[in-house]
Structures are given as C-alpha cells and as structure tokens.
Design a protein around this nucleic acid. Structure first.
Lengths: 156, 156
DNA sequence: CGGTCTTAGTTGTAGGAACAACTAACTGAC
DNA sequence: GTCAGTTAGTTGTTCCTACAACTAAGACCG
C-alpha cells in the first residue's frame, strides 16, 4: 500500500467523510419538510435572490451553484412549473436564456431563510468556537483550491 | 431575518457547502474510473474488509456506512451480482442476514485502495498543514456530535 | 456570404437514493 | 401455545442526477 495515512490524518479523514456524507441529508431533510425544497433548489433560489434584477443567465447560475448545465436545466424547469422562477430568452444573445426569480420565488426565499439559517447554526456554527469557525474557513478554502481550482463556487 | 450569520461565519459556511457539494463528486469520479465503484460501494467494501471474518450483519453494516437498510439492501444485491460480496442467513437469528466479502471483493479493495488514498492525499491532506489536519479532526468531530449524536458512523 | 467551429441550452435515458409498503422471524404476555 | 408487537430485510415506486445526443445561434475565416 503506497504511502498510507498516519493516525492523525486517518482520524481527520474518517470524520470528514462522515460529515460530508451526513450534512447534505440534514440540510435536505429540514428544507424538504419546511419548504418542499432540496438544498440545491434553495441554494439556487438564494443565488438568484442576490443577483441584480434577481436574474442570471443559465450558465452564470450553473457556475454559482456548481451544477452542470443539464442538471440546472432540469431543476429550473421544475421550479418554473412551480412558479418560483421564470425563464426568458436573453435579448443580447439569442443562444442564452435568463432565469429570474418570481415574486413567489422571492417570498419563498424570505420565508424559508430563517429556518434554514437556524439549522445551519444549530448543526454547525454553534458546535464550533469562533476560533474554529475561522480555522474551518481556512481549511475549506485550502481544500477547494484543490478540488475547485477555478473557484467557481466560492470565489477567493 | 432572525439572527443572521456574521461575515466570518458566512465565509466558513459558504466554503463548507462548496466543499461538501464537490468532494463526493471528486471521490466518485476517481473510483468510478479506476474501479467502477461509487464511493459508497468502496466504503462498504472497506468496512467489510476490516471486520472479523470479513463479515457483518446487514444492520451492523448499515450503521457503519450510515445507510438505511433499504439502500444497503439494494447496494449489496448489486455487489453480490458482481461477485464482490456474498450473503447468507445468520445461523443464530433467522431474521438476520450476514454479508461477507468474497476473495474477489478483497482483491478489489486491495487493488483499489492505493489510488483512492492517493486521491484523498492530493485533494485533502496535502492541501493542509499538519496543524490544520489536527484542527479539521476536531472541527469535524464537533459537527458530528450535532448531526450524528449516536456516533454511528465515526465512533468517538 | 457560405462553411465550419464553438457556445448555450434542452431533451432523453439510464442508474442510484429516499420513502413506503410488505414479508418473515423472533419475543414476551397471558 | 398463541397472539400482539417488534426487529430484520426486501421489494417497488418515484424522484433526482449524470451522461450523451441533439438543436439552435453566434463567431471566425476564406
């Protein structure tokens, strides 16, 4: 076995895996229950809500949510069917499509955010000391430089 | 908005989300390419490989891999069809089923582990200082106490 | 302009995961 | 013993995601 992990590394890795495996489920479950949204859908709506005109090109939205274009296309279609998002062709570029948050979509975000933030606090932030929060930002940043060198999802 | 996150917390959270969203894909892609396994399947085989007799009851395996029993049942069936695992009824309890790693399954783990460990090193461990590896273990441990209080996945 | 290449996005399909419903086997109370 | 309740797993359905194929529009080049 080439170059195995030592005990310290092994411990960090096992816990990281466990966390990475469990955290999405925790977030999805809460959002599912309270807003009938997956975490990905919520995140997508949140990205739109922060954009100018609450509008983004599909490609830009894909970058911000770290989704492939096909995946995004499916998800946006479903959200459009629920009236939370609308699509319209981009005037400047006939190939492009814009996605815009509807009023209902904005209301959904506003209504959903507090419960979501509370979940994040309860399960992550409040579990850590302020020092650890700072460390976590640095650690996650370092790992992202490896797995997401273009910084598409979290600009650095 | 009740009790929002401050900038420091926000930064840590955004990066954590990005990492949690991207890391599984990185692991899955490498294992898929080199061993035609998902990370979950690899992890399952690895758990079996460390168990006495390379055998575990389905329920015990579900706990260690943090899977629901239905999910585990499907995955083990597929692995059994590929000859990597075999199932047999537990002699002591007629309800129970044991899953055992076959020779082929063991060989698969042995052959796959080095590449997997290299990926883990490249994308995570080597991105961090030894100090940060230590911090990561503590941070992930603290979060797991919230999201996995029974410590099913990573015993503490 | 006509042909090729690239970019933007959609659609179709196949595979995995969550959830619910079901079966089989044990356990404990009367 | 037998009947209610619990535990162990499996099976089936629905939804989501990844991957591949396709369409349409702009860009570049002669």
């Amino acid at each position: 076995m080439t170059d195995w992990l030592d005990d310290e590394q092994q411990a960090a890795w096992v816990r990281l895996i466990a966390m990475v495996e469990l955290l999405p489920g925790v977030l999805d479950t809460q959002l599912r229950r309270e807003a009938d949204l997956t975490h990905f859908e919520y995140f997508l709506l949140a990205m739109l809500s922060e954009a100018p005109e609450r509008t983004l090109r599909m490609t830009a939205l894909a970058v911000r949510t770290n989704a492939t274009l096909p995946r995004l296309s499916h998800v946006v279609r479903r959200l459009e069917e629920r009236g939370l998002v609308e699509r319209f062709p981009c005037p400047e570029d006939g190939r492009a499509t814009n996605a815009r948050l509807t009023e209902a979509g904005w209301a959904k975000v506003v209504e959903t955010a507090p419960g979501h933030v509370a979940t994040v606090r309860r399960n992550v932030i409040d579990a850590l000391t302020p020092k650890q929060v700072e460390q976590l930002a640095a650690i996650a940043g370092a790992i992202l430089e490896r797995i997401d060198p273009d910084g598409t999802m979290s600009p650095r």
